[in-house]
Structures are given as structure tokens and as C-alpha cells.
Amino acid sequence: MGVGLFQYTVLSVLVFLLGALGLMIRRNAIIMFLCMELMLNGVNILFMALARSKGSVEGQVIVLFVMAVAAAEAAIGMAIITSFYRSRGGIGVDRADLMKW
């Protein structure tokens, strides 16, 4: 049994869900941010696999766009987390509790 589209799809969904799960159960902002990147990269795997199996470039181009977006998001994300750290003295998201209800 070779590695086909189906296996790649399962892999990408698993990576995506792993990222989502991480975002939902971890408290550390940096880890959560990495999990977000994991979600995006899970989708990237799917796009690559699809592009290969269909023989179209569209999917590959999309991956490039997504990577650029992820990079920009990382830059702004790190800035926000730094700023948050300065104001709360920590990066646990449970410290973000000023607003509720």
C-alpha cells in the first residue's frame, strides 16, 4: 500500500486537529501561537498533496500565499504577546481575564 492522497489527507487533518486541540488546552501564549501555525501547516500539507495528485499549480501557489500570511501573523503575534507580557508579567492566557460576562 503506497502513500496516496488519502493518507496525506488524514495526516493533514490530524495535524490540524492537533493544533486546534493544543490551542484549546494549553495556557502558554507562545505554545498556543505555535499550535495556530500547526493548524495552518496542516492545511498546507493538504493543499500540496491535492496539487500533486491533480497536477495543478493552484494549490502550490496557495501554499506560498499561506506561508507569507503566516509569517506576517507571526510577526504581529509576537509583538502582541510581548506587549501582553509587559503589562501582565507573564504569558499565560489565563491572565487575560479583565473582561468577561
Partner: peptide, 17 residues
């Protein structure tokens, strides 16, 4: 209804999922 709004990011993420 207000108490759905816990102010905690992971809870919100659960809601979305």
C-alpha cells in the same frame, strides 16, 4: 447568557469548534 462569556480564550475556541 452572560456567563457563557468566561473571558477565557480556550473556552471561546471550544465554542467556535
Amino acid at each position: 447568557l452572560r456567563y457563557i462569556q468566561t473571558g477565557f480564550i480556550p473556552d471561546y475556541a471550544w465554542m467556535i469548534l
